[in-house]
């Protein structure tokens, strides 16, 4: 079941922004969008319940606060989208489940939804043929030309906010994709593991282990984060030859 959502914002560009974010998510669909808050008020109070309403706070005719009181019972979650400062926002937080401060990233948008609906996590729509042993990405540094990346060549992937830097055995590629998205692509390959909040590494390319630091084949050093330590150490233990001699 897809989540049903309504968007209310007097700015059409803000609605378009949310629409395009919604399109990238697989588990949510736009039910209706309103630029007129009064129209929204009549429609929603007389309509069916929805899962989530995104609503601007600062609108003409009726304030977001008043509107939220009137329609709060028709939606399971209410998310304010506002450019107000977070302190101004906190004053009227009681009606809302969450807030997004404009302008906000897709990542924050998805994260907020995931937090409110943990039972149906919204995953980005990434369609990729998993049978192949390679994929194509746009290389930002070569005028976004498509470049082939073999899974077996990947040494590590570094997060650069909304970009990642993919280190392969013979080059590095910067491409516009989030680490969380790459993680989904790589999740079926047990050779890849997250070593740090900003690094995914290929286990078979670990060259050296020094305490909490991994040295990769291309001289890249990666520190292992606290929460990822166990998985990495287990792998290393498995691969470590132990002698029974003592």
């Amino acid at each position: 079941m897809k989540l049903k959502c309504i968007v209310i914002d007097d700015d059409i560009h803000a609605i378009n922004g949310i629409k395009s974010y919604l399109n990238t998510l697989s588990n949510i669909s736009l039910y209706k969008a309103y630029t007129d808050p009064l129209q929204a008020l009549t429609d929603i109070t007389g309509g069916a319940n929805v899962d989530v309403i995104f609503m601007d706070v600062d609108m003409p005719m009726i304030s977001g606060i008043e509107l939220s009181k009137a329609i709060r019972h028709k939606t399971s979650k209410l998310i304010f989208t506002t450019s107000h400062s977070k302190y101004a926002y906190e004053a009227f937080e009681m009606n809302a489940s969450a807030y997004l401060l404009k302008p906000y990233t897709f990542a924050r948008f998805a994260e907020t939804l995931n937090r409110l609906f943990p039972q149906s996590p919204s995953l980005p729509n990434i369609s990729i043929q998993q049978e192949e042993d390679y994929f194509f990405v746009r290389n930002k540094n070569e005028k976004n030309s498509l470049i082939k990346v073999r899974y077996s060549d990947i040494v590590a992937v570094e997060s650069l906010q909304n970009y990642v830097r993919i280190y392969t055995t013979n080059e590095t590629i910067v491409t516009y994709i989030a680490l969380s998205e790459i993680k989904i692509i790589l999740q079926d390959y047990p050779n890849f593991a997250q070593a740090h909040r900003s690094f995914i590494i290929a286990k078979n390319h670990i060259e050296k282990v020094e305490g909490n630091t991994l040295k990769m084949v291309n001289n890249l050093t990666v520190n292992v984060g606290n929460s990822y330590r166990e998985g990495i150490q287990e792998y290393i233990k498995e691969k470590t030859i132990r002698t029974s001699r003592s």
């Binding site: 700015d11 560009h13 803000a14 378009n16 922004g17 450019s83 401060l101 404009k102 302008p103």
Partner: peptide
């Protein structure tokens, strides 16, 4: 300011 930045961002 932030409304305008949001507008630029969306566009």
């Amino acid at each position: 300011l932030f409304n305008t930045l949001d507008f630029i961002y969306q566009n």
